[in-house]
Every structure is written in C-alpha cells, then in structure tokens.
Design a binder for these strands. Sequence first.
RNA 1: GGCUGGAUGGCAGAGUGGUUAUGCAGCGGACUGCAACUCCGCGAACGUCGGUUCGAUUCCGGCUCCAGCCUCCA
Length: 465
Amino acid sequence: MSELQIYNTLTRRKEPFQPIEPGHVRMYVCGMTVYDYCHLGHARVLVAFDVIVRYLRAHGYTVDYVRNITDIDDKILERARQNGESIDALTERMIEAMHEDERALGILPPDREPRATRHVDDITAMIGVLIDKGYAYRADNGDVYYRVRRFDHYGRLNNRDPDQMRAGARVEVDTAKEDPLDFVLWKAARADEPSWSSPWGEGRPGWHIECSAMSTCCLGDTFDIHGGGPDLTFPHHENEIAQSEAATGQPYVNTWMHAGALRVNQEKMSKSLGNFFTIRDVLQSHDPEVVRYLLVASHYRTPINYAPDTLDEARRSLERFYNALDGVESVAGAVTGDWAARFHAAMADDFNTPEALAVLFDLVRELNRAQREGRSAEAGALAFELRRLGAILGLLEREPAEFLNAGMADELPLAESDINALIEARNAARRNRDFAEADRIRDELAEQGIVLKDSREGTRWFIEH
RNA sequence: GGCUGGAUGGCAGAGUGGUUAUGCAGCGGACUGCAACUCCGCGAACGUCGGUUCGAUUCCGGCUCCAGCCUCCA
C-alpha cells in the first residue's frame, strides 16, 4: 500500500505519516459548542474527518478517535437564558440533534466523545500545574489567566510573532490581565451561573483549556493527529499547544490538520455572519448522501462554495454511480484493473478524495461496459469493488433503487399500483405496436415526474429529481 | 498592517516541467419503435507581467484579484 502523506499545518507541507505507536493512531478533533443546530460548515468538518478516520482504518491502522463536546460556555448560558430553558435541557437537546444530523450524513461516531462538564477535575488539575510552573496566575477579578509571554514557542503554529500581534486592536482588553495577549483558563463565577469549586474559587473553565485537558487525558501527553475547523488555528489551537506543552513538558501533537471553509457567496458560512444553512434545513429538500457527496467531491483543505445548484449537480454525479450499480448483483470476484491500488494511491496522498472519485468513475465506465456486453460475472465483481471502495468514503452503501427514488415517497402523485397498471397498459400497447398510445401513457407519467426505463428484464420507473 | 492559502475549459474540481484528470452541461454517432439508462467519439483551460529552461499551466519573482486568521466561530 502507498505510503501515507499528510499535510501538517505546523510545517506547512506534506509529510510521511508515522504514528508514535506503530499501527495505532491517536487522534483528537475539536467538536461542537452545543448551543444551536449544526450548519453545513460543521458538516464539512465532520465529514472531512470522518473520511480521514475511515481511510486510516482502511489503510490498516487502529484509530482511537476522540471528539469533544463543549457543553459549558458563554453562548450556551446566553442562549439558555433567552430560551428560558435550563442549560442541561439546551445542551442535551442540541447534542441529540447533532447526533441525528451525523447519522443522516453517514458520519461514524467517534470512539470517545468527552464533555467539558464531565472533566472539570482534569481541567482544574491542569490549571493547577500551570500556576505552579509559573505559566498562569490568578488575577484580581478572580479569573485565572495564561501568561502567554512565558511560553517560548507561542505563535509557532500560526507563524506569528507575539510582539507583532495587535491584541486588543478590535476588542477591548480586559484590564485584569498582565498582558493583553493573556487568555483565560478559569472564569470566576457570577451569581446566576453554574459553577464548580476550585482552589481559585467558584467558577467555570475557559474554552481552550478543556481541549488540552481532555485530549491529553484521553490520548496521552503526546499524540498523533489533532484536527479541527479552519478558524481554530488561532487562537484556539495555538493556546492548546501553549497550555499542554507548558503543563506536561512534552511535545503536544505531531500532525495538525485543518479542514477548509464552507462558503456562501464567497464568504465563510458562520454563525456570526448569519449566512448559514443548518444541516436539517438542507436535508428537508436534499438527500443526505448528495450532501455528503458534495463535501467529499472537493479536497478536504479546499474551500467549498455552497450553492443549491452545486447540490443538484452532485445528485446527477451520484446518479451515475447508482445507475451503474442498479440491476447488477455485487459479488466478490476477480477483477481486472488496478482500481483499488489507484484508489489507495489517491487517498494516501493527503486524502485526495476528488482523485479517488475519478478512479471510481473510471471503474464505473468499465462496469457499464461489462454489463452492456453481457459479461455479468465481471460486472458483479466490479460492482462489488465499487461498493467496497465507495464505503471508504462513506458512499454507495444503499440499494440503487432506494437512492434513485429516495426522499420523494410521500410526494408520490399516484399510488404504486396505479403506476404499475399504467406501465402494464403501455407495454400492452407496445406489444401491439401502438406506439402513439404507449408514448401517451409515458408522457402522462412523465408529467407526474415519473420516468420509465425499459430493459430486457422489463420496465422500471423512477422519480425524477 | 502581519500571517496563511487560492486564481484551471460553460460549471464543479484534481493534477502535471514536454503526452486524456474526472463529473455535470453541450455536440456527433451507436443502442432503443421513440425515449430513459448505457456505450463510442468531439470541442473546450490553466489570472497577469517578467525570469529560469530546449520546453512552464506546472519552478522563481513582481502585479492584480479572491478567501481565511489576527475577536466568539467548524
């Protein structure tokens, strides 16, 4: 199998990937802050790392995949207050919704999904170490801050010099800090907020520290891969490095991976810009596998510009796959051609999914040829191969007819029995060479959005999307 | 202002120092009673100005434009 190369944000180049423990990958990805429904930008990151994990496993690695949930945070408090619901009720509701969206998109659950509120002890322990080592201090307002200038490598991930940073240029600096660059590790509790006790008084964890604490406690002081969305490189991941390496004295992460942004009208889709579509909204009118295909059809680091048209095109591309699979029995068998090798070569090159899909389209052409020429054993073997490789991308795992007719069942304009009766009437007309009548019936069905497909085995119908 | 990453055919989107990406759409042909599906074939591209080179879309530099980060955001 081809040697795996991964682009590392830290070095800004592709590197041969070598896990710390041979055959075993330890990986952490920053997950959601659960105060609202996930949008397509979240889906992009979730799918990207889902494909990465699936491929690492297909490549032969055992993967320990950890993705956290941030379930305590300013936004959660604010939203719960607005909604007049408890923080627990809000976060439980959103976690349930997130899992639902993930299942719909074929995103496999991570092996562990730690939550900030369940790891407060680990968090306070890490903050304690940082204070003892002089990397953190309790300020007059009761907050605990990280002393950024104490950490020599600060800015390395982002190639930034602390002296050049214009902290506070756009945001008012909290005067309790020794230095504007310092960031909060522990927030002193306010009267009506949930809080935990700590050596520095009642309070709650800051955002960055939870990932340092949960990742190192789940995966060890040093682990293989840390991933996240494109907007987390600074400050979140920079701060994680500062916290973790200062606390443990060990290198934190070997390979940093960041997905590209999802854009709308050439602007990043984000909560703050308000230009987002939630996953569940999009799934109202689009098949989840089509959404997944759209996301996989671009390389994970490239920005994707989202527009409803791109989804329609994605559907037509997927239809080519499912049309090829339709009516062919997938059976393991000898296959001529080096599709698997080409597929793996593409994926081993920093998870090049567009190239991997191109290989699958080549395979589809060969499959259609075999099918057309009556080489059915070969067609069956190719179909099997197509499904096996497609599954690595989390695609092509359904029954073709189910996909081709998906999502419209409750909108069927006619009862299935009526459709079948019309098809039978048309075929009777065809047998009598009354093609005018046959075409009239076909047109009648077409007007209802039902497309016919004749073959030696008979006539089948599909819903036009 | 600093730091990233981009600019590829009608659209989407990989890649490469000299030779077909791939998909969608379009065009011609085949299959079909006609279609749909499918097959065969075709046209169509590398932002701009310089440099390196026998040769650059691919390497280097300038320019223009776009996006992201520098503030919570995936």
